[in-house]
Each structure stands twice: as structure tokens, then as C-alpha cells.
Computed example of a mutant assay.
Amino acid sequence: MAANPTLAGTAPATNTTTNTTMAGAPVMVIEAAGLAGRSMGQRSRLADTAAGGGESGPRPFSDLVHAASRRYSLDAQLLHAIIRVESNGNPRARSKAGALGLMQVMPGTGARYGVKNPSELMQPEVNIDVGARYLSDLSRMFGDRLDLVVAAYNAGEGAVMRYGMAIPPYAETQDYVQRVMGRLDGGAR
């Protein structure tokens, strides 16, 4: 793997490399300041100590985030980072693609986890629970490779698998992974 030049806005502690799949498509592999290759629990402890997790002061929906992180054995910092990048903390956020709420959950993903009425995804407790359950499943699917978990949350697990268990070469997904990982690395992007 050859190192890529640092992308604009990327913290120096974030390593970006490219790889090529069998199909010849370039894909990105990202490691943020020693967080990649560690268990979710180890990353949680490291991220919690890194500049306060990249945020200062109280965070919106912290109680719900911490409850979901305990319930699904996830790093609360990861949930906070995804909420910040996905919706900037707006529980009423709606994307053009149809994603809803704080964690921008698609109605199909909600249905996968038993939410039959998409409007329920606008309730912070439902949205955070579904988003955290999905992240937990992705974590098991990708063997705790946090960069792939984050990429799959954005692009779907099928896209990550199609590109040889690597971050798909979609500019939006590559930027998304950089932004989420940067927040875990103590940066507030």
C-alpha cells in the first residue's frame, strides 16, 4: 500500500493509504491515531482521553447515547461523532435520500430493526437505538475494523464488501469516514 497525500482538513495523526481491489478500483484505508486495530473497548478508552473526545461541554442527547452505547457495547464517542457528522445534533434532520433523525437512519434500516412507521425514527430515543444497533451489527460484521464500520454506516455493508472489505471509492464516503474518525481522534471537525 502506498501512502496518499494528506487530504485537506485531515489531522496529521490520521493515516490514509490506498489499496486496489481485484477489480482495479482504488479504495481508502484509514487509521486514526492508533485507534484502528484495537477493540471497541480499547478505542473507547483512548478516544475518551483524547482531548475530551473532540468535544467540550455537555452534548445533546448524552443520556440516550450513553444508554445505547452500554446496551450495544459501543463507544459513546463513536455515537456522538456520527450524530454530529450526520445531523449536527438536529433530531428533525431529513436527507434528500430519505434518511431521518439524529443518526440519519434510512426507513429500510429502521424496518430491519422493527420500526414499522418511519416517523418513529424522528424520536431521538428510537433513532439512537436503531443507529446503535446497526453499528453494533456492523462492528461484528467487519471484525471491529472501525474504518469499515463507519464506511458501511454511510455507504451500506454491501458496498464495503463489493470493494474487497475496504472503504468504497465514493468521495462522500471517504470524506465521511475522515470526518467521523477525525472526531474520534480528538478533532472537532
Rank of each mutant, 00 (worst) to 15 (best):
A3P: 11
N4L: 13
T6R: 15
A8S: 13
T10R: 11
A11G: 14
A13V: 03
T14W: 00
T14M: 12
T20N: 14
A23C: 12
G24W: 10
A25S: 15
A25R: 11
A25K: 14
P26M: 05
V29K: 13
I30T: 09
I30K: 08
E31C: 12
E31S: 15
E31N: 15
A32G: 11
A32C: 10
A32F: 08
A33N: 14
G34W: 02
L35E: 01
A36Y: 00
G37D: 12
Q42T: 13
R45Q: 15
A50D: 08
A50V: 01
A51P: 06
G53A: 00
P58L: 08
P60S: 13
P60L: 08
F61V: 03
S62H: 05
D63F: 01
D63K: 12
L64A: 14
L64T: 08
H66G: 02
Y72I: 09
Y72M: 06
S73R: 14
S73A: 15
A76M: 06
A76W: 04
Q77H: 13
L79I: 15
H80I: 08
H80R: 12
H80C: 00
A81E: 01
I83N: 07
V85Y: 07
S87T: 00
G89S: 01
N90G: 08
A93S: 09
L100H: 10
L102W: 04
L102Y: 10
M103V: 05
V105R: 07
M106L: 13
R112C: 03
R112Q: 13
V115P: 02
N117V: 04
P118L: 05
S119C: 00
M122P: 02
E125V: 01
E125G: 01
G131T: 01
G131D: 05
L135D: 04
S139N: 12
S139I: 06
R140H: 15
M141G: 13
L146H: 01
L148A: 10
L148S: 11
V149H: 07
Y153V: 03
N154F: 04
A155K: 09
E157D: 13
A159H: 06
R162E: 15
R162P: 09
Y163S: 01
M165E: 12
M165A: 10
P168M: 08
P169A: 08
P169T: 08
Y170D: 09
A171S: 15
T173L: 03
T173G: 05
V180Y: 06
M181E: 07
R183H: 13
